[in-house]
Structure formats: structure tokens, C-alpha cells
Design a protein around this nucleic acid. Structure first.
Length: 411
RNA sequence: CGGGGUGUAGCCUAGCGGCUAAGGCACUCGCUUUGGGAGCGAGAGAUCGCAGGUUCAAAUCCUGUCACCCCGACCA
């Protein structure tokens, strides 16, 4: 894409109110725009990142047998009442009325809807397991939104629901999701730990949070550096030594990047989602649910991957693969830049080409802020040596490579 | 929801009873410039969040209201 056509514009100063690093850089790079408290627009660059992250998650969840579907945002009161959550959900639902005064809760989580789907279609053990997921807007009526994308009131979540015939099968899948999550976070450049947590109003008998250690995190956890045991501080209570290895526990703060719940039969019993087992008896389906908030994940990536100049996107989640800058506006430079741009595109690379008539300093500074992993420069200087300069965002030194060798270095 | 804070041009800020509301970024035009947010000149852009009040005079003081931010509580 030509940067001269890019809708968004970077800013020298972050808007007032932006306090966390991720919020400042997302705002300055014009990845997002605030519409209201805790409600954001993803602008073209931000949405590209969002799509990259979404696709990583999609691949990994498909790999463990997930089938993608899409459920509605408007969920009738009746559905929530089946499980009693119309009253008990906290933070409370956003409630809207239709023109006949009928009430709906905007989806904050979809156990009721999906359990209804499954009970209408599943009747035998032979039809299980099923693993269903979606990417969908979630609405959370929080008391207060904080930290840019870290805690918002509307966001897109990947929510996966598992339906198994036995506790053992369900726990095996729970473990598979855990492994898939580790892969997802790794591909996003994050090292996370799974810690024991409370299951809140979602319910169930077992729950893990995937925590990324970061100063800006609002989740407090205790962590055992010796054996990697961890627990949410509410779950851990007053414990000061590790229940596994008895070593001293450390307190850390972190960002909750994902959450797994083993629900058991909480929803299937309430909603009569049952199957006929081999022995001919009706049994409730064993369920689990698994969420990742995409916006928060994106913010988390920035919290751990940046320098004082801007974002350092890990390869794979960056808005573009390559940022090509042309310095100087001689015919030769422009012609050669265009050629490099086209050649890279032919190779299937996603290239942002800074074709604007701006000062070099401005282009460099903006490139660092936006944080695309590979930066190429075409200028009189590089052309004198028949070369292109290449610099990785996460490295200090740039180097010259010959034009004909370029593809080897970029791929 | 309790406590604190802030609303001035698209963004960041100055002005805090007194003349035509000031500066930086961004924007438009011209010339220059081209390896780390360029220089000079010209220009456009604001009912000072909104409503009411006090005053000869209100961006400035008072009351109300709305919005946003921070701390706390809450958090699927």
C-alpha cells in the first residue's frame, strides 16, 4: 500500500488521558481512535493487526478441532433466564429494548446461546465431542474502562465452547486448549503462564488465567519461580509458600491475556443439554469455555515489545511485512523504489511504501513509531552501490544488500 | 458507585475578571531543503463542553449539567 494514500496520520503527542505505553503508541501511531470511554474504533493499521491476530488464533483453534460459527449480539432475556444469569451476571448486562418493549442483553458471553444450539442438534454420544467457536463483539458494562485497549466495554473476543461425553474427555480437551493458547501467545511474541483462578459468574469447577507479566497489568498473582506454579491472588488467599514445592511465592502483576473455564455440567444441566450414552442413559454434556480478548492481546504485545521510539511488532502480527522508504525525490530513486515495491508484492509480501515527499527524519521517526519489522530504504546513497538498506525494527544496525539479493534477506 | 482531576481549532498546550483568545503540531499556497519528526514567507481554522447566573465587562467567578481521565470498589 502507498503510504500517501493511507487514511491515518501519526501524532507527535499522545492524546491527554493516554497513560499506558500501549495506549500512547496505539494513539500516536493512529491504530485506534476513541469513540467513548472504553469504546474504540480500529483504524486501518490497527485493524490489520487485529486481523493478523485473529488469523493466528483461528489457525490454532482449527488445529485442535474447533469449528467456527457466528452468534448474534442481541440475546433475548429468555435465554439468560434459563440459567438465572439475567440477574446474576456481573458486571451487569447492557440491556436494550425493541419497539415492543421486549428486552435483550447485549452478548457478554455466549454459554446460553451455544448450549441451546447444541441441545437442539446433539442427541447421542456418537455425535460428540463438538468444539465450537466464534470471533464476536462482546459488551461488558464495566464500572470503569482503563488503559486504552486493556480494559474496554466493547471488544472482539474469540470464545470457544467444548462439549464432551465425559469429564476425562473434557479435561483432555482443556489441556489441548492450554497448549494451543501457549502457541498462540508465542506466535504473538508473548511468554505467558497459566495460573489458577476463580471462575466468577461464568462458573465451573476449574479455571486458569493466562497471565503475561507486565508492570501495567492490573491482575495480581502469586508465582513460584521454582516450579512455575501460579495462582490469582484471590484464589491463593494468604498462601506464602508454593503448594507444589514449598518454595517461597513471589507476587507479580500481569495482564490476563486469556481465560479457560472447565464448566462441567453447570449449563448443560440448567438447560437440559443431554445425550444418550452407550449404556442407553441420558447424561448432561460436559462443557468448557475458553476466551481471548483480541484488543487486550494487542495492547499486551505492545506493553512488552516496544522501545522509546515506538512499537516493535513481532513478525506475524505487524500491520505490514515490510516498510519501504524512499529518501530523496530524484527520478532514479523513485523509479527504483517503485520497482522494489512491485517486486516484493509479486512475492506475496505486504508492503507499506512511503512514497510521500517528506523529510528523511520524518519518515524514519514515523517508521519506528509504527513498528513494522523490516525497514527498507532506497536513496541516492544506496543506489550508488546498487543496493537497498535493510534494517530490522528489533535490531540496532542496518546493512546494505544488493538489489538482486534483496529477496533472500526479506523473506 | 465513592474520592480526585480536566474540558480553549483535528491533536498538544498558554491565558484564570478588562482591548481583536496566544503558541506548537497537523492543514493550504509559494520558494528552498532531502539520511533521523526540515527552513522562510503567506493563509485558513475557535460560538473557550453545554445551560443558567453574578458583573459596566466572563474562557476567566458562582450554580447546575454533560463528557473524558486517574485512584478505589467491581471485573466473564
Amino acid at each position: 500500500m502507498l503510504q500517501s494514500k493511507l487514511f491515518t496520520k501519526t501524532k507527535k503527542q499522545a492524546p491527554k488521558g493516554a497513560e499506558t505505553i500501549s495506549h500512547k503508541f496505539l494513539a500516536r501511531g493512529d491504530f485506534i481512535d476513541q469513540t467513548a470511554a472504553g469504546i474504540y474504533t480500529f483504524l486501518p493499521l490497527g485493524w490489520r493487526v487485529h486481523n493478523k491476530v485473529e488469523n493466528i488464533i483461528r489457525e490454532e483453534i482449527n488445529n485442535i478441532g474447533g469449528q467456527e460459527l457466528f452468534m448474534p449480539t442481541l440475546i433475548p432475556k429468555k435465554s439468560w433466564q434459563e440459567t438465572g444469569r439475567w440477574e446474576t451476571i456481573d458486571p451487569p448486562l447492557f440491556i436494550v429494548k425493541d419497539r415492543h418493549d421486549k428486552e435483550f442483553g447485549l452478548g457478554s458471553t455466549h454459554e446460553e446461546v451455544i448450549t441451546d444450539l447444541v441441545r437442539k442438534r446433539i442427541s447421542s454420544y456418537s455425535e460428540l465431542p463438538v468444539y465450537l467457536y466464534q470471533f464476536q463483539n462482546k459488551f461488558r458494562n464495566e464500572m470503569r474502562a482503563t488503559g486504552g485497549l486493556l480494559r474496554v466495554r466493547e471488544f472482539i473476543m474469540k470464545d470457544l465452547y467444548s462439549f464432551d461425553v465425559s469429564k476425562k474427555a473434557s479435561m483432555d480437551f482443556y489441556e489441548k486448549v492450554r497448549q494451543a493458547y501457549i502457541k498462540i501467545f508465542k506466535r504473538c511474541g508473548l511468554e505467558v503462564v497459566a495460573v489458577e483462578a476463580d471462575s466468577g459468574t461464568i462458573g465451573g469447577d476449574l479455571s486458569h488465567e493466562f497471565i503475561l507479566f507486565a508492570e501495567t497489568g492490573e491482575d495480581k498473582i502469586v508465582f513460584c519461580p521454582a516450579c512455575n506454579y501460579g495462582a490469582n491472588i484471590e484464589k491463593a488467599g494468604q498462601a506464602t509458600e508454593c503448594p507444589n514445592c514449598k518454595k517461597k511465592l513471589e507476587q507479580k502483576s500481569g495482564i490476563e491475556a486469556g481465560h479457560c473455564f472447565h464448566l462441567g455440567t453447570k449449563y448443560s444441566q440448567a438447560m437440559k443439554a443431554e445425550f444418550i450414552d452407550k449404556d442407553g442413559k441420558k447424561k448432561p454434556i460436559i462443557m468448557g469455555c475458553y476466551g481471548i480478548g483480541l484488543g487486550r492481546l494487542i495492547a499486551a504485545i505492545i506493553e512488552v515489545s516496544h522501545d522509546d521510539r515506538g512499537i516493535i511488532w513481532p513478525t506475524g502480527v505487524a500491520p505490514f511485512d515490510v516498510h519501504l522508504l524512499s529518501i530523496g525525490n530524484s527520478e532514479k530513486v523513485i523509479e527504483q523504489s517503485k520497482k522494489v515495491y512491485q517486486d516484493l508484492q509479486k512475492q506475496g509480501m505486504d508492503v507499506l511504501y512511503d512514497d510521500r515527499d517528506k523529510s528523511p527524519g520524518e519518515k524514519f521517526t514515523e517508521a519506528d513509531l509504527i513498528g513494522i519489522p523490516i525497514r527498507l530504504v532506497v536513496s541516492e546513497k544506496t543506489l550508488a552501490k546498487n543496493s537497498v538498506e535493510i534494517k530490522k525494527r528489533n535490531e540496532k544496525e542496518e546493512k546494505l544488500v544488493e538489489l538482486k539479493e534483496l529477496l533472500k534477506y526479506v523473506k
